[in-house]
Every structure is written in structure tokens, then in C-alpha cells.
């Protein structure tokens, strides 16, 4: 019975996907395209190539294309970020900015796909608003990247104060998010 129900759900989902608008097809193509680019970037920056990890990432990317309004894109982005954190040596080169923009592209594509069923074609006003927001987020990323470059260039004294301050900000942000996300 469970099998038949799940088969039915998959069939329904594929039926809905068959009606996908051209815009949705383009947006859903972003995660499977951006993920290999991100992996290639990590390899370029010195990370060893892991076939299993790459296969998992490709699987998650395809899952994100099929189910952009689910938790799959979250796992994809977290896995990509973890790959970067664990495999890539600390760097503030141009590639860092490119990696951030690739993650942003995956996130934005899945967000836009989540507005409705696959057959939905978003209107010009909504797309225009998101183009502006995307630029804003990309600009903020560039500003932070420049800021970190600047701070790295300064010879700041080592000590516990900057670390504690940063941790406090991060924890405060996490607590705020948790309260807002969990409270309805």
C-alpha cells in the first residue's frame, strides 16, 4: 500500500513537472549546473577530488532541481559549504567571491521555483524585484569580501576580544533566527 501511494506521488510529481514552464526549466537547471562548477572550483583551489562526494553532490543537485521547494536544496548548500570549509585552504582570492555567488545562484533559483507549481511562469515585476535583490545580496557579499581582504591586510593584534565579539554576534544572530523561525 505504501509502495503504491509513493508511486502515485512520484507519478503525480512527474506529471506536474511535465507541465513545467520554460522559465521553471531554466531556473531548475541552475543547481545541476552550478554544483559541478563549485566542485571544480574547490579542486582548482587545492581540494582533492572525491568521486563519492561529487556523486552525492550531483544527486543533491538533481534533487534540488526536482524538489526546489523542499529541504533538498538546504542539504545541497550545506554540503557544498562543508566541502569548502573542510577541503579548501583558507583563501580570500577572487574564487571565494565566485563560490559565494554560485551558492547565491543555487539559493535564488530554488527560491524562485518555490513560488508555485512547475507550470507557473513568474511575471516580469516579480522577476525584476528579485533581480534587484540578487544584485543587493551580491553587492553585500562583495563588500564583505573587500572588508575581509582589508582586515586581512591590516596587522591587527591577536587576542580573545575580536573572537569573543564575533562569536557573540554569530550566536545572537542564531538565537534571533531560531526565535523568529520557530515562533508562528
Amino acid at each position: 500500500m505504501t509502495h503504491s501511494v509513493s508511486t502515485l506521488a512520484v507519478t503525480r510529481h512527474l506529471d506536474r513537472l511535465s507541465l513545467a514552464s520554460r522559465q521553471q526549466v531554466l531556473l531548475r537547471a541552475v543547481p545541476p549546473l552550478a554544483t559541478p562548477l563549485f566542485v571544480w572550483l574547490t579542486v582548482v583551489l587545492g581540494s582533492p577530488f572525491h568521486p563519492l562526494l561529487t556523486a552525492l553532490l550531483v544527486l543533491l543537485a538533481v534533487g534540488s532541481a526536482l524538489l526546489p521547494d523542499s529541504s533538498v536544496p538546504l542539504f545541497l548548500v550545506l554540503t557544498l559549504a562543508a566541502t569548502w570549509a573542510l577541503q579548501v585552504p583558507q583563501t580570500l582570492s577572487w574564487w571565494t567571491l565566485v563560490a559565494a555567488l554560485l551558492l547565491l545562484a543555487i539559493h535564488l533559483a530554488c527560491t524562485l521555483c518555490g513560488y508555485g507549481p512547475p507550470a507557473l511562469a513568474l511575471d516580469r515585476a516579480t522577476l525584476s524585484a528579485w533581480a534587484t535583490r540578487g544584485l543587493l545580496m551580491a553587492s553585500a557579499t562583495a563588500v564583505v569580501w573587500l572588508g575581509t581582504l582589508l582586515l586581512a591586510g591590516l596587522d591587527l593584534p591577536a587576542g580573545p576580544v575580536p573572537m569573543v565579539a564575533g562569536l557573540a554576534v554569530a550566536l545572537g544572530w542564531t538565537a534571533y533566527l531560531g526565535r523568529r523561525l520557530l515562533t508562528r
Partner: peptide, 27 residues
């Protein structure tokens, strides 16, 4: 997704002193 990724990356960036992760977390 935005909340969890931003919180996780920011915490790791601060905790392990990785400013590049802060760049990834910004958007």
C-alpha cells in the same frame, strides 16, 4: 535555508577564524 546556512557558516567562520566562510554566508 537562508537562516540555517547563514547561522552555521557565521558560527564556523568566527569559531575557526575563517573569513572566507563569512563571505559565503553573507547573501
Amino acid at each position: 535555508r537562508a537562516g540555517l546556512v547563514s547561522a552555521g557558516l557565521a558560527a564556523v567562520a568566527v569559531g575557526f577564524g575563517r573569513p572566507d566562510l563569512l563571505v559565503l554566508a553573507t547573501p
